[in-house]
Every structure is written in C-alpha cells, then in structure tokens.
Design a protein around this nucleic acid. Structure first.
Length: 316
RNA sequence: GGGUAGGUGGCAGAGCGGUCAAUUGCACCAGACUGUAAAUCUGGCCUCUUCGGAGUUCGGGGGUUCGAAUCCCUCCCUACCCA
C-alpha cells in the first residue's frame, strides 16, 4: 500500500493526449513513466494500442510496456504487483514514478487497492459457467443468494461473470466475497464502520475534453491507425505460434480487425465499427472518472496543461 | 408509358382491425464494476407528467368501422422488371 506513496497519476479518456503531455512532464520533473494500461503490455500490439514510439521511449524511460507475449494472460492483481515493483525501482533510482494511461479498473486498484482474496480458478469457473448454461443464470444467482445475500442483492442475475467470481471466492475461502471486499466505496459497503481506512492518497490528474472534441479525435485517430498499417499488424499477430490470449484478443479494434480478416468483412464498415466501439469505451472511462473523487480535472486543450497537471499533483 | 414490390420511431426491421407508443437489433444517454476490465452487465430512449396517467405518432389527404400502423379511395415518393 505504501508502494505508491511516491507516485503520480495522469489519466484521461482514450485519444485525449496523455502520451505527449506525459513525456513533457516526465522530462520536467525527472520522472519515469509506468503504463497504466492493460493492452500496451503486449509485444507486437503497437499501432492499435497507441503505444509510445521507440523515439518517445528513448526520451523517457517507460515501464510495463512490451512485457508479455500476446498469447499470455494478465490480471489486475498481476499488474498491480508489477506496478508496485516498477515504482520501487524508479524511486530507488531517485526518479518519480508517473502512471500514465486510461484503464480505469487498474486505476481504481492503484488508488484503492484490491482485497487480498484468492486468484481465479479456471476449472472452478468452467464448472460454474457450465452450471449457469445448464440451469440458467437465475439458478446460479439464487445459489449465491444462499451463501452471500449481500452480494447477490447488488449483482444482476445476468451478470454471470461477477456471480461466478463471488461463488468462486466463497468456494475457495469459505467466506463470502462481501466479507473480503471492504476497501472500496461500493454502495453496498458505504457504511464507514464497515469500510477499511482510506488508502494513502496518490495525486492524480484527469485530462478532460469536450465530448464532441474527444469523439472527433477518436474518429480521426482510428483512421490514422488504419492507414499506418494496423490491419497488417493484426495479420502478423495471427501468424504467431500461439493464438492470442483471451485478454489480448479483446483489445479494441484488434477484435474487430480479427473478425474482418477471418470472415472477410467490409473494410469501411470495420473502420466505423472500431470508431463506434472506441467512442463507447471512452464514455465508460468517463463514467469511472466521474466517480473517482480524488481525480483532479485538467482541460487537455488548455494552453498550459502541463502546468495545470503539476498544480493538480501539488508540485509547482 | 405498363407491371410488381414497397413507404413504420436516428438507422435497420417486425407488426397487417382492438391486448400498439408500436417486438427486436444497432446507434444514442445514464448507471454498475475489487484477479477477463480496450472486457462484461444493467436501465432509459415521441412529448408532458403531481408518475396514477395525459397528449400527439406508423409517407400526405379522404373514407369504412364502436375501434385502423393494419381495410378502401386518392395523391406523392422509392426499388426492381417490361417498354
């Protein structure tokens, strides 16, 4: 938990200009960048993830980029651990760790921590998912209500993924997941008496942009990425010795391009689909940001955005 | 000019006399989210509403009927076929 005491965070929706600003800031304060990103970890997935270029990485040292092969899986817990290690390493070198990226779940885990529960059990999950398929999602949800009514109340029966995880935690530990999850501000656990003490505050800035401006940037950037050879990149990924992992395969645009290459879709329609899905993702990011109270908003298009971010971080 | 098939909510597309403000999908808006998270799930989506309802909708106009998006007449438009 004190792993991040020295860290700074710069987040914002996709395509809002985080990368360029972060390089500038890192150079100004002697920082190194840690990717707060679930997809730039993969080697060979460069264009569509808007991964910082070699030149940019030569300017400022980056961490947690290109650390996995596309057929490998990752989890938040794995990321968080690596992030903490990177942080310690950077601090030991006398530099400032700057987390840059827009994966909101990882951001929240960084700011609030994760409960110390058991990792996923693939076989158990397969069984539970099979049960849901055979007996229906309502039956699975009812089973959860039997062992953890608190969690069952807040999960929709169709939310199989979370119902399965809740059942999994209970089966593995004998304790309901709601007894473990006391570090976040989830409505069900808003009672201060039941919440863990707030974690050390990590200064964090969110870049903001008017919705229309952001959407326009997204639309244009997808076009640029496609022109830059994104489809060829995906073709190369398909020729790898192993199939892409579930996590890598679900990356925005890669999934659509894979579908396009495998089933011969329409190029223009695919491009539009990627634009739409990217805009929808940006919206989801905004929902997270709105509800993370410690994030300090900074207009990305402000003349002195860098200065404003430094102010938000409390450095000036 | 003749023939055929059509014109339904932002789009696609059901409905074919009442149970229709109108199935569904997409888009859009909002919410959730603790080991798949660039994923996944949920709600809303004609207008107004004291949330009980109320008022306008299914190309335009006119009819039939207790009652029409659904039937008839007419006009306009679209697609394809024959000229």
């Amino acid at each position: 938990m004190s792993a991040f005491t020295n860290a700074l965070v710069l987040t914002g929706p996709t395509a809002c200009g985080k990368t360029a600003l972060a390089l500038d800031l890192a150079e100004r304060i002697g920082g190194e960048i840690v990717a707060l990103d679930s997809m730039t970890v993969y080697r060979g997935m460069d264009i569509g993830t808007a991964k910082p270029s070699a030149a940019e990485r030569a300017r400022v040292r980056h961490h947690l980029i290109d650390v996995l092969d596309p057929w490998e899986s990752l989890t938040v817990a794995w990321w968080l651990e690596r992030a903490g290690a990177a942080c310690a390493e950077i601090t030991a070198r006398g530099k400032r760790p700057i987390f840059v990226g827009g994966t909101p779940f990882y951001l929240k885990a960084l700011l609030h921590g994760l409960f110390d529960g058991p990792p996923a059990d693939a076989e158990l999950r397969r069984t539970l998912e099979g049960d849901a398929a055979r007996d229906g999602v309502a039956a699975l949800h009812a089973r959860l209500a039997g062992v953890d009514p608190k969690t069952a109340t807040r999960l929709h029966p169709n939310d199989v993924r979370r119902v399965v995880r809740a059942l999994e935690v209970h089966a593995l530990t004998g304790k309901p997941i709601s007894a473990w999850q006391q570090t976040w501000d989830t409505p069900a656990f808003a009672d201060p008496a039941e919440s863990a003490p707030p974690p050390a505050r990590v200064p964090a800035a969110v870049l903001t942009l008017p919705r229309e401006v952001l959407y326009d940037r997204i639309n244009r950037r997808v076009g640029v990425m496609l022109e830059a050879g994104w489809p060829d990149e995906v073709r190369r990924l398909r020729e790898l010795p192993h199939a892409l992992s579930r996590e890598a395969r679900q990356a925005l645009g890669y999934r659509e391009l894979l579908e396009y290459l495998e089933n011969g879709g329409d190029r223009g329609e695919t491009a539009e689909l990627i634009r739409t899905h990217t805009r929808q993702f940006a919206k989801r990011q905004l929902t997270w940001f709105r509800h993370l109270p410690s994030l300090v908003p900074v207009p990305a298009d402000a003349g002195d955005a860098a200065g404003l971010v430094l102010g938000a971080w409390g450095i000036i």
